[in-house]
């Protein structure tokens, strides 16, 4: 269990949130042009980093808004939280 600072609501318990996986995976602009390899890369392949990872979270039992987080997956420490559409803070 850890505490998460929602950029809209402030500090809340992690159980109020839902993790949404790796962030900044760009949706293909021309889906019809994609090869099978590119689809696999977009849909399935993940960095799954041990260390600093950029990810999406949803405050599902709160404001229900999505936001981004920078987190160290080796010890669950949260490094930064930022809103959707914002540039990730430089690590």
């Amino acid at each position: 269990m850890f505490l998460i600072t929602c950029p809209f609501c402030g500090e809340r318990e992690q159980s109020e949130f839902k993790a949404g996986g790796e962030a900044h995976i760009v949706r293909p602009k021309q889906p019809t042009e994609l090869s099978d390899d590119e689809w696999a890369e977009y849909l399935f392949m993940r960095k799954n980093i041990k260390g600093i990872q950029f990810e999406r979270w949803n405050h599902v039992h709160g404001c229900r808004k999505w936001f981004n987080m920078v987190r160290d997956t080796s010890n669950d420490q949260i490094k930064a939280v930022y809103k959707m559409g914002e540039k990730p803070p430089v690590k």
Binding site: K18, A19, N48, I49, Q53, W57, R71, T73, S74, D76
Partner: peptide
């Protein structure tokens, strides 16, 4: 848990 973690917790 639903998030990626290597912390074994």
């Amino acid at each position: 848990d639903d998030y990626v973690s290597y912390s074994q917790k």
